[in-house]
Amino acid sequence: MTIKHTLKLCFLLLIFSCSTQKVSKIEGKRLNIDEHIESNKAVEAFIKPYREHVNQDMNNIISYAPETYSKSDGELNTAIGNLMADAVFAESNPVFSEKTGKNIDFVLLNHGGIRAIISKGNITTRTAYEVMPFENAVVVVAMKGNKVNEMMTYLAKAKRAHPVSKQLQLTLTADDKIKSATVLDSPIDVNKIYYVATNDYLYNGGDGMTFFQPNEGLTVLDYKIRNVLIDNFKKTDTLSPKRDNRFIKLKN
């Protein structure tokens, strides 16, 4: 065999071996990241100044929770959801009134927007960030009664504990039909204009909430939901949210 031939053969083998890399075995596993692993010193040192800056603000105690509250605590209304919707009403209505001379009729938020539990014990600024990490802000939508009825149909179909404020009372039959829907004890009037506070995400159709548009007008309050919670917590020494009958389904 000449050198030329040998080189040719080697070249062919090279191509052959390159083009036939095949997976012969696969192993998969999940590795825990917990206290058994030591922290990387350089990474830890890099995080430190950021952490100290954030913690200075976050660890501020602003209220107290006598129990742990979770968004899975009830079928169609929960203590934490009622707390949030009522807080949006309480904190936003003065801002809205001053701006427009009108009052908010009720509040609608979404169940998925409650991003964490409120744990029993001290409530800090951090709690508000955990429950509402998003930057969404309060908007007030002027909507006709027929659009409010559309909202009620949505809530009946969604079968989720989307938070509503206590001014709204929605009762469903056992087969998820609307039994009654009232705002401040009056049935929904299709010709009346209602002022409904929500957040900009839902206003723009988030969570399939298409009933907010078109509408009779929009007021942007420039007030983040998270700041609503912080302001509300600061005013309340001990929280006492309750599950109640504002949005329920009858057993039979």
Binding site: V23, S24, K25, I26, G28, R30, L31, N32, I33
Partner: peptide, 27 residues
């Protein structure tokens, strides 16, 4: 939330000696 790290190892062999029906998977 970075509670776990996923790890998948692929072992490669070259040539004709790989069975046509694919790799052995151990998970």
């Amino acid at each position: 939330y970075g509670l776990y790290l996923g790890k998948v190892d692929f072992y490669f062999s070259s040539g004709k000696n790989i069975k046509a029906d694919g790799a052995s998977i151990m998970v």
